[in-house]
């Protein structure tokens, strides 16, 4: 990997203009960690690696952190704090103002059929409003199709595990095995472990593991946390999975 095309930047560093994508038609899109100072200055605000995609005319800073800042259309796992007359108040990360989730923002929900969620229950939701001057808003249904698309209350057992935000992003990648270099889930669910479980990953650094068997939940959760905290590579992940399976039997 050529380090010159993906330089490590610190806040306020100058970005070499040769690295800024210049697409003839598409406008430049800035991802996380960058800010635009009119007229034409682009500065990083965090320390991380600059990633550019000239084909898509987009650039962002790849970095890892642990405090989630809500961003539009992120998938998140929230905890219901309390219920208001029209909204649930949902906690996305500790010590932040709660996000609001309308009572009717569930698939097929009407006044009569809306789900009754108690404080402490979990929901998988999408951020619909993220504005620095307002508290965030989330929904569990797609406003355009009216379908849940996998969102909604996370029920039937399971547990939430906290991981770093970078790890959550890797899990959410379309090809988390090839690009994110995470194999634990496939190994545990595949030939190696033969465990049956379901997962939901929130951008806010939360992973929910659901299974009939509590033991499975704990093992999968432990494998994920260990992979994140110890920064395990693919080979080490295989070793970890073998060890965990052996311990279980």
């Amino acid at each position: 990997m050529a380090s010159t095309t993906r330089p490590t930047l610190l806040p306020g560093d100058e970005i070499p203009s040769s690295l800024i994508p210049s697409h003839p038609t598409k406008p430049l899109r800035l991802g996380p960690g960058l800010r635009h100072l009119p007229p034409s200055q682009i500065l990083p605000t965090v320390s991380g690696q600059l990633i550019t995609l000239p084909q898509k005319s987009s650039m962002w800073i790849e970095y890892n952190s642990s405090r989630y800042i809500p961003t539009q259309s992120d998938l998140v796992i929230g905890t219901i704090l309390r219920s208001g007359p029209d909204f649930y108040y949902v906690l996305l990360s500790p010590f932040t103002p709660p996000a609001t989730l309308p009572h009717l923002a569930f698939e097929g929900a009407t006044k009569k059929t809306r789900p009754q969620l108690n404080p402490g229950s979990l929901v998988y939701a999408r951020v619909t409003l993220a504005n620095k001057h307002m508290d965030p808003e989330v929904e569990c249904v797609s406003a355009t199709t009216g379908k849940a698309d996998g969102l909604g209350p996370l029920t039937n057992g399971g547990m939430v595990f906290d991981v770093s935000l970078g790890f959550a992003r890797r899990l959410l990648m379309a090809k988390s095995k090839e690009e994110g270099k995470i194999e634990v889930l496939e190994l545990l669910g595949g030939e190696e472990g033969k465990l049956s479980f379901e997962t939901a990953v929130g951008r806010n650094g939360k992973v929910w593991i659901g299974s009939e068997d509590i033991k499975t939940v704990v093992i999968v959760g432990r494998a994920l946390k260990e992979t994140d905290e110890k920064k395990l590579g693919v080979e080490a992940q295989r070793k970890l999975v073998r060890k965990l399976i052996k311990e279980m039997k």
């Binding site: 990997m1 993906r6 610190l10 320390s47 970095y63 890892n64 270099k181 920064k231 590579g233």
Partner: peptide
């Protein structure tokens, strides 16, 4: 010093890249 400290932190975080 600040830069090299941060560079090693970023490199450690993005080990999977």
């Amino acid at each position: 010093f600040l830069r090299s400290t941060m560079e090693s932190k970023v490199a450690a975080d993005l080990y999977w890249k």
